[in-house]
């Protein structure tokens, strides 16, 4: 399937989608509201994007970007889905009913970036401790992979 066909298919499900072909794979930016319906459509025929091989988040200091790397084990055409989120109250629909691997990956993004995944069955910390370590002011949020995070106890900046 060519990039043009993918673009046409995605535009028919999410008209607001913007495309970027400068990288290795086709990048698609969509709204958070249309993500759920778009991913359900991508999983079915004719795209069959059944393999979510990476899910992560990037902090751009004024907004967060969720990044989903999708591929199909049948057609093998990787694409990158992106959703921009508000940095103060980030929330997005969970994808763990579409791809089961998203459940644990979303838990990691939740604890590292503070993104709330709506309707997630088990949204808890996965790697970090449940309680905030002593000496850290958690009132403004405690999200280690955000750019403004400073840990006074365990310095990791060189």
């Amino acid at each position: 399937m060519t990039n043009e066909e993918i673009k046409a298919y995605i535009s028919s499900h999410a008209p607001e989608a913007t495309f970027d072909e400068t990288g290795e794979w086709l990048n698609i930016t969509v709204d958070a509201n249309s993500l759920k319906s778009l991913t359900t459509a991508l999983l079915g025929q004719p795209m069959e994007m059944n393999y979510l091989f990476n899910l992560t988040c990037v902090d751009w200091k004024n907004h967060l970007t969720m990044v989903y790397h999708l591929s199909s084990t049948i057609h093998r055409h990787p694409i990158v889905l992106k959703v921009n989120l508000d940095r103060n109250t980030p929330s997005i629909e969970t994808l763990c009913f579409t791809w089961r691997t998203a459940e644990m990956l979303e838990r990691e993004v939740f604890e590292m970036f503070g993104v709330q995944f709506l309707n997630h069955p088990d949204l808890r910390n996965l790697i970090l401790e449940e309680e905030t370590p002593k000496g850290i002011d958690a009132s403004k949020g405690y999200w280690p992979l955000r750019k403004d995070f400073e840990d006074p106890i365990n310095m990791i900046k060189l």
């Binding site: 400068t22 990288g23 290795e24 794979w25 091989f53 990037v58 990044v67 790397h69 990158v80």
Partner: peptide
């Protein structure tokens, strides 16, 4: 400037490195 992704096959499966 940009985003790069490299996939390799380790002994355990697919390792992906994603760099912004």
């Amino acid at each position: 400037k940009g985003e790069f992704y490299q996939r390799v096959e380790t002994a355990r499966g697919e390792l992906g490195v994603y760099v912004v």
